[in-house]
Each structure stands twice: as structure tokens, then as C-alpha cells.
């Protein structure tokens, strides 16, 4: 039993990290008032870019860095569409998602199913032998630790710094932020680009860290789960991190249960995260706390000369 839990917890980050990175990116973006439906696309692009570069150059670090840049670049196109051209955010997000999926599919085609040497777990002797939590805490690759750092850093940025104050103000009330001298468009573009970068990193984790191969449909809806996770986490980066680990733990548990012969309806149990999220939405709507958390200007294009 102890063995089972140790290895279950140890494998949780592999499922949780992509969700955590993407949903924290989306939290940042939505806190700046931009609804970003493109995560699935940035992640696919990131996963493909990281895999292809790691395959050709043999260096996962370069692959990961390129994935971050690729995600950011695609997000910048989305940002140009919604912040400068004031496009409908949902439709523009879906379109960017398609562009990302499309590029990943087309460019990555020749590299499908070619496995490579990916990112390896850090070797921390002794500590990783601690029962239950040892593998979870001390036998992971560097991105896992980085993700936790990013989560804390993002929380600090949003809640404790003037830069974060500006981002939040733009998402809550762009007209007031504008009057206060905040450059609304710039803040939103930065938040969008950062969210693309984080989603690209999430994609890179999928291909370079957790599977060491690129296949079609590698992201498999994780971008959408990340989007739901933002709502589940009530727009808080730390809660998004925790939520991702919760969802990841469920995802990691099910194949293990099946493997040891527990007759669990894994597909039905996999529904739980989605049903949880819907329940959270419903509870929030009923208790009226939704107004207290969701960025008030989410999804609304800002034009200074509109009559506010």
C-alpha cells in the first residue's frame, strides 16, 4: 500500500504540471481582463517545438526555451487581434487555438513517434527514498520545481507588487486604470504574451519531460481543462496550482487502480474534475461570490473614447 501511494504521488506531477502551468498562465491573462481560449493551441505548438528541437539538436533546454518563445509568439498574434484590433475574444481565441493546433500538426508531422532523450528527473540521493512523499518531493525534473516557483512568483506579482496591481486594475476596471495612468493595452499584451509563454512551457513539459516523444493530439484537451481550472481556482494562481495537483492526482490514480486490478470505472471517474468544476460554478453563482472574484471587465474590449 505504501509502495502504491509513493509511486502514485510520485507520478502525479507528470499529469499536474502541464495543467498547472497552462492554468496559471490563463489566470494571469484573465486577471488582465482577457478571456483566452487559445491555450490548447499554444500548448500544442509548444509541445511540438520542444520535441522537434530536442530531436534535432539533442538539447532539451533549447527545446523548452524555443517552446516558450513559440507559445509567446502565437499569443502575441492573439493579443494583437483582441487588444489592438478589438476582436471578439472568444472567437479570436478559438481561431488562434486552431492556428496553433494546425501549425503543430503540419510542422511536426515528420517528427511524429520519434522518441528522444528528454528531460530527466533530478537525482537527489537518499531523500527520494522517504516513504510516501519522497518520490513526489525529491525525484522530479527541474520543471516541477520551477512550476511551483512560478506559482508562488505569480501570486506575489499579482498580490504584492505595483506591476500586479496594474494588471488587476486593468482586468477589473480598465477605464479607471486608464485614468490612473496605466497603459491598458500594454498590460494586456504583456499578460497575454506571458500566458502564451507559460502554455508553451506546459506543452514542452508534455513532450520533453513526461513522454519524450511528439505525437499528434498530444495535448488532448488539457488546454480546455486548464481553462476550466481557472474558474475552479477562482482566478488565484496558487489555487490553480493546487487544483492542477488535485486533477493530476485523480488522473494519475486511475490507470494505477486499473493496473492493480481494482474494478474502477476509470472513464466515469475521470469525469470528476469536470463535474467538480461545474459544481464550483454553480455554488459560486448561488452564493453570489462570483461577482467577488471574476475580473469584472473579463472579455470586454476597452476603447477609451467609449462612453463609460
Amino acid at each position: 500500500m505504501e509502495q502504491f501511494i509513493t509511486s502514485w504521488l510520485g507520478s502525479t506531477p507528470a499529469f499536474a504540471i502541464p495543467l498547472a502551468l497552462a492554468s496559471m498562465g490563463l489566470v494571469l491573462c484573465e486577471r488582465a481582463g482577457v478571456l483566452n481560449m487559445g491555450a490548447e493551441g499554444y500548448m500544442a505548438l509548444g509541445a511540438m517545438t520542444a520535441a522537434v528541437l530536442t530531436l534535432t539538436l539533442g538539447n532539451p533546454a533549447i527545446g523548452i526555451a524555443a517552446a516558450v518563445l513559440a507559445g509567446a509568439a502565437l499569443a502575441l498574434i492573439f493579443g494583437f487581434a483582441v487588444v489592438i484590433m478589438r476582436c471578439e475574444q472568444i472567437l479570436a481565441g478559438l481561431a488562434t487555438m486552431a492556428v496553433g493546433l494546425g501549425i503543430a500538426g503540419v510542422v511536426g508531422r515528420p517528427y511524429v513517434h520519434k522518441s528522444f532523450e528528454g528531460l530527466q528527473p533530478l537525482d537527489i540521493p537518499l531523500l527520494d527514498q522517504i516513504p510516501l512523499l519522497g518520490r513526489l518531493l525529491f525525484n522530479q525534473d527541474i520543471l516541477v520545481y520551477l512550476t511551483v516557483l512560478i506559482g508562488v512568483g505569480l501570486w506575489f506579482l499579482l498580490e504584492r507588487t505595483r506591476a500586479g496591481l496594474k494588471i488587476r486594475a486593468v482586468g477589473e476596471d480598465p477605464a479607471s486604470a486608464d485614468v490612473a495612468g496605466v497603459q491598458v493595452q500594454l498590460q494586456q499584451l504583456m499578460a497575454i504574451t506571458a500566458s502564451g509563454a507559460l502554455c508553451g512551457l506546459a506543452g514542452a513539459y508534455l513532450s520533453v519531460a513526461s513522454s519524450s516523444v511528439w505525437v499528434d493530439n498530444m495535448v488532448a484537451g488539457r488546454g480546455w481543462i486548464a481553462l476550466a481550472l481557472v474558474v475552479f481556482a477562482r482566478w488565484d494562481p496558487l489555487k490553480a496550482l493546487a487544483g492542477a495537483f488535485l486533477f493530476g492526482a485523480i488522473e494519475a490514480l486511475l490507470p494505477r487502480l486499473q493496473a492493480i486490478g481494482v474494478p474502477a470505472p476509470i472513464y466515469l471517474m475521470n469525469m470528476l474534475p469536470y463535474l467538480f468544476t461545474i459544481a464550483v460554478l454553480l455554488i459560486a453563482a448561488w452564493s453570489g461570490t462570483k461577482k467577488g472574484v471574476e475580473p469584472a471587465a473579463l472579455g470586454k474590449p476597452y476603447v477609451r473614447q467609449d462612453r463609460h
Binding site: E88, G102, R109
Partner: peptide, 28 residues
């Protein structure tokens, strides 16, 4: 020609994104 079918999704995305962006010139 070995062109993956993801290209169809890509084309759809590009057409939609372009259509959305040009609307700027009629709305603003």
C-alpha cells in the same frame, strides 16, 4: 503529398482570424 490533415484546421483558423481582424475597419 504527405501534407497532414491538420492543415485544414490551420486554414480554418487563419480564415476566421482574418475575418475577425478586418471587422475592425468596419467597427472602428
Amino acid at each position: 503529398y504527405g501534407i497532414p490533415d491538420a492543415i485544414v484546421v490551420l486554414i480554418q483558423g487563419m480564415v476566421l482570424l482574418t475575418l475577425l481582424m478586418v471587422q475592425f475597419f468596419s467597427s472602428y
